[in-house]
């Protein structure tokens, strides 16, 4: 028995929803980064799954290339985001995103 594109789309939607839930509820910067990473992995599931099921494409399936792009963007976002969080943590002494509401230069 094989699986078509439908269940793959549902799984992708559930993962996207979990990421969106974390993005809104988490208040620590590390948690927000993790949630964005989960959110960005939802398209990886969709594109790779669609390609495996052979659906949604008229020409040669390039969904796997888009999935790879999503993985690279996810890794890049996490790296840059982690650097930003480390920088803000050094400036604000806090991981709580509510403390980052007004980010401004510190007086010297």
């Amino acid at each position: 028995m094989t699986v078509g594109p439908g269940p793959v789309a549902i799984l992708s939607g559930i993962v996207f929803a979990i990421g969106a839930f974390g993005l809104v509820t988490r208040r620590d910067a590390f948690g927000v980064l993790v949630s964005v990473a989960v959110l960005l992995l939802a398209p990886v599931i969709a594109f790779a799954g669609f390609t495996a099921a052979g659906g949604g494409s008229l020409g040669p399936p390039q969904g796997e290339v888009v999935a790879l792009a999503a993985v690279v963007v996810c890794a890049a976002e996490t790296l840059v985001g982690a650097s930003l969080v480390a920088l803000l943590r050094r400036r604000r002494e806090s991981l709580d995103t509510d403390d980052y509401v007004d980010v401004e230069a510190e007086p010297h």
């Binding site: 439908g6 939607g13 929803a17 949604g56 494409s57 399936p61």
Partner: peptide, 24 residues
């Protein structure tokens, strides 16, 4: 909302998926 919109669209699509069957 995300589950309803995304999965609702997938379920509403039903068997209307275009299958190319090409694998590279």
């Amino acid at each position: 909302l995300a589950v309803v919109v995304l999965d609702g669209a997938a379920l509403a699509g039903g068997g209307g998926w275009h299958l190319s069957g090409i694998k590279t």
